[in-house]
Nucleic acid binder design. Structure first.
Length: 101
DNA sequence: CTCGTGACTTACG
DNA sequence: ACGTAAGCCACGA
């Protein structure tokens, strides 16, 4: 099922424009919560894909993180590059691509 | 209700 | 700088 918490997260995530990314931390902050891990769990579920761009969510350091969908982490990077995001060795330049709500 | 798990973060040695 | 441990929250069994 889709919990209220997840809805909030997905809604915020949809605000991230193409060519930009956000971090689990920022996303959690955006929903006034510190459930960084729960955010990750929500992405894993992602009942609204591809409506919800879960591939635009990365770790606070710029590391792409994980990705359970078919294709794995590699696919995630592909998608990001297609959107114009430069990804190097699983890392993204937050100063250029981090989207702040 | 309690326990275990995870697409995380921060602190410490 | 790097690896490990602890802290965190939400969710399913």
């Amino acid at each position: 099922m889709v919990t209220k918490f997840q809805k909030r997260v997905y809604e915020k995530l949809q605000q991230v424009p193409k060519g930009k990314v956000t971090t689990y931390k920022e996303l959690a902050k955006a929903v006034k919560s510190k459930a960084y891990r729960a955010v990750g769990t929500a992405m894993k579920k992602n009942p609204f894909a591809p409506k919800v761009p879960c591939h635009r969510v990365i770790n606070s350091d710029g590391y792409v993180g994980n990705y359970t969908a078919p294709g794995g982490i590699n696919k995630k990077i592909e998608l990001l590059r297609k959107e114009g995001v430069i990804v190097q060795n699983h890392y993204i330049d937050l100063n250029k691509y981090l989207y702040i709500f």
